[in-house]
Amino acid sequence: MRKLGETKLKLKSTVIAVFIASEENSAITGVGVDALVKDGLLNKLKGGPLYWIDTADKQPCIGTGGMIPWKLHVTGKLFHSGLPHKAINPLELAMEALKVIQTRFYKDFPPHPKEQVYGFETPSTMKPTQWSYPGGGINQIPGECTVSGDVRLTPFYNVTDVMKRLQEYVDDINENIEKLDTRGPVSKYVLPDENIRGRHPYIDF
């Protein structure tokens, strides 16, 4: 960056350097990335390409993995927990569906041989990091929930391919909701008498 400033080279692309604070501290808001997003200072980066250069302990590390944030929205049927056979528990549905999604992800995007060559400590991963639901009493099965997380992708796989596959996993689950594993004798994701099906309607990126 210093060299670019000193030589004032005429480049075909615009170089933007972002220096952030409070990267992983969610207790302090309004600084770091939060402030940059609020002021629209990261908008120019949306079109890419984007290279993340980080430091870890003693030495710099480059491109440890691209990030794809995702949210999985799940719809069940709200009911009293004393009568679980009349409900569709979205928490159970989310857990079982996510297990299928993760299993298929790791089968389709296994550790790549080049990761060892370039010293990657971990392969590509897809996992949940947050869980939310509308709230309610402990004796109430909620009607919906959202699981959020990220994909950390090594550069040997294509981001577009991964997003397409994740959507395919969710679509397949929706079409075959009855085939998901259940939790206990009255756990179910379809209520035929009421013509109600649990839904994993969409995954947001």
Rank of each mutant, 00 (worst) to 15 (best):
G5F: 05
T7C: 06
T7S: 11
K10L: 10
S13Q: 12
A17C: 11
V18D: 01
F19E: 04
I20N: 15
E23C: 02
N25E: 12
V31Y: 04
G32Y: 02
G32T: 01
L36A: 14
D39W: 05
D39L: 09
G40S: 07
L42W: 00
N43D: 09
K46N: 09
G47S: 15
G47V: 13
G48D: 04
Y51L: 13
T55K: 14
K58Q: 11
I62C: 10
G63E: 10
G65E: 11
M67R: 14
P69S: 04
K71Y: 05
H73A: 14
V74C: 02
G76D: 03
L78D: 04
H80K: 01
G82W: 03
H85L: 08
P90K: 11
L91N: 11
E92R: 11
E96F: 09
Q102W: 02
R104M: 06
D108C: 08
H112W: 12
P113H: 12
K114F: 03
E115H: 00
Q116H: 14
V117W: 10
Y118Q: 02
G119F: 07
T122S: 15
T122E: 13
P123L: 10
M126C: 13
M126W: 05
T129K: 05
Q130E: 13
W131V: 14
S132H: 08
G135E: 02
N139H: 14
N139C: 07
E144I: 08
T146E: 14
S148V: 01
V151D: 01
R152G: 08
L153T: 00
P155Y: 08
P155C: 09
K164Y: 06
R165Q: 11
Y169E: 04
D172A: 14
I173T: 02
E178G: 01
E178A: 09
D181I: 11
D181W: 14
T182L: 05
T182I: 10
V190E: 09
D193Q: 13
R199W: 01
F205N: 04
